[in-house]
Design a protein around this nucleic acid. Sequence first.
DNA 1: TATATAGTCAACTAAATGGTTGATAAACAT
DNA 2: ATGTTTATCAACCATTTAGTTGACTATATA
Lengths: 120, 120
Amino acid sequence: MREFDERDDALDKAFLALADPVRRRIIARLSRGSATVNELAEPFEMTKQAVSRHIQVLEHAGLITRSRDGQRRPCHLAPGALEELTAWIDSYRLVAEAQFRRLDSLLDNMSNNVQKEEPS
Amino acid sequence: MREFDERDDALDKAFLALADPVRRRIIARLSRGSATVNELAEPFEMTKQAVSRHIQVLEHAGLITRSRDGQRRPCHLAPGALEELTAWIDSYRLVAEAQFRRLDSLLDNMSNNVQKEEPS
DNA sequence: TATATAGTCAACTAAATGGTTGATAAACAT
DNA sequence: ATGTTTATCAACCATTTAGTTGACTATATA
């Protein structure tokens, strides 16, 4: 009954948010502690409005949260959000690694069989 | 002398590639073993050309590789590619967690000080 | 040779992204 | 009350993305 899968949508937004060097640098900066929009915008050769929208993308992706401090709107890394992404990646990474190991032992068996069959 | 940072570009492409449910399902499928374009396209209500381009996006992002088997072009998960993404995420995740722990102990100290100053 | 199968290329359209400038809101400071 | 700082909203433009259809290449097969 739902137009789209909510988990898909959450992953879409999170991965898309990270698919931009500006937004990744913002994440990197916030990993060392909270910061305001002006502080986050300062290193970039781009208008503050543009950075403000990058921040909104990160916020809607659930990667950061914001609070209110007078006229400031400090940004904080959302605890747990990055874990969800690594969890998704790792789930398939581990399956693939198991698959590779299975292939390795299959090749081992084949070469063993060759050795066994060779003498015949 | 370079237009853009190569590492940035690689991360851009990889995260962008994962920011799509179709491409994530392709990755999920390939984690269980190689598959041809037709096999990958079959579950989707979309032309084979569209899926073919999704596959190219994954390939240019370095997430999958392709080989030749007659008229088939089997796709395989690129070993090690997913690790690089978790490595990027984890590097900041761990910094952030250390930061949270530091904040926790700071708050602990403050509440201890309050307790000590209370009696005065 | 002809024909089917696997896959890509090219051109087109609709929608989303990423940036700009200019106006505005909200909290502070004088 | 007026002005300053912090940040967002709105309109606009250029570029990219994601899908379509139709033509095409290349390999396999009758």
